[in-house]
Design a protein around this nucleic acid. Structure first.
Lengths: 193, 193
DNA sequence: TCTAAATTTAGACAAACGTCAAAATCTAGA
DNA sequence: TCTAGATTTTGACGTTTGTCTAAATTTAGA
């Protein structure tokens, strides 16, 4: 990403980021990501091409920024306020937040899934993005815990398990309640808790 | 992929497929996948652009074909000759075959990893490709087994666990022997066996 | 409010993409 | 070996990409 998200944003920079991400989210809800081009995003957001390239490397980069915004809505970082949780509780907590995000954003996400192949680059990049965020979260969270297994390996395994269920429920369309999902998670992670 | 891999290939078609996949494998061992363009592949393989587009949609498509060839070298399908295996044995068996593939193709794969970011699209697509193959394998394999969990969900979980260790060992460069890996797998899957 | 610095915009550019129709060449079966 | 059908190649085409420069505009501090 060309634009530095860590520095404080001017009002116009924020406007530009908002406009492009909103345009992208609108378009991927309407058509296949592969078919979207930069001019289309510029037309919809009413910004010139050069401005797009001031902020983003390419459309994949903008897509990543969209995922970043969307995942932020899950407030996964609140897990750091629950240091007393067991591994299983932390896992259920993270799962619930992602599950709620999917329910809350159901209209948008269903439209995206309807327009984009489950094995295409859009869905892959979304899953990869959530997986990455969850892994980072658990790297921090398990930091102080003791285990005879490598901490990061366990964190990755736990993240994979959460993502597996998210895929199963929302991408492969299986009707699973939160409680049932918790049951699955416990069976999958049982030995580690 | 434009070319139908299921139909029998003419000699020239096989030559073309070989040349392009070899050119791609050579190039990704030398430079970053993002920087490779179609003309470069055509120069190296001595085929015209239009021939490339006769066979492949784009460079990602050719890359997928390369992964298909590489993964075939692991002979994962031989698992179907071992119907008596437990879930854990089957998992170790599949892991071993992928592990051996990485050892056997170490020079090529290390060069690829050295030239391509672990979070970039090349590595992601490779991992996704192996994951997909492993999942398909276990969908077949567990087909007749009984479990109070959905068969495909278990197959996906098992595949994820194998891939987790492959990533851990070969992409994140942790020195883990086969025996140690089997130990990890048992701890991660313990409850399901 | 004014001004200097930073950012955005317009427009043009070369390079790469992906498609096409017609010509050349290959292939498999008689 | 010959030939009809299928495939590959050629070369050209319009589109999209990503970069660049100079002009216009916006920003933030005095």
């Amino acid at each position: 990403m060309k634009y530095d998200l860590t520095k404080k944003r001017s009002r116009s920079a924020q406007r530009t980021l908002d406009a492009f991400s909103e345009a992208m989210l609108t378009l991927i809800g309407q058509k296949n990501f592969e078919k979207i081009n930069i001019n289309e995003l510029c037309d919809l957001s009413n910004f010139p091409r050069a401005t797009f390239y001031n902020y983003f490397d390419d459309k994949f980069d903008l897509l990543d920024y969209c995922w970043y915004l969307l995942i932020a809505e899950a407030h996964l970082d609140e897990l750091s306020n629950k240091p007393q949780y067991t591994l299983l509780e932390a896992c259920n907590y993270a799962f619930d937040h992602v599950y709620d995000l999917f329910k809350h954003r159901e209209v948008l996400l269903k439209a995206i899934v309807a327009n984009n192949s489950p094995t295409g680059s859009l869905i892959t990049s979304f899953i990869t993005s959530v997986r990455f965020t969850t892994r980072q979260l658990f790297y921090q969270y398990f930091d102080t815990q003791k285990n005879n297994l490598p901490t990061k390996l366990v964190a990755d395994h736990v993240s994979n398990t959460i993502l597996l269920l998210i895929e199963w429920i929302f991408l492969k369309n299986h009707d699973v309640s939160k409680a049932e999902a918790h049951n699955y998670i416990e069976k999958f992670l049982g030995n580690l808790c």
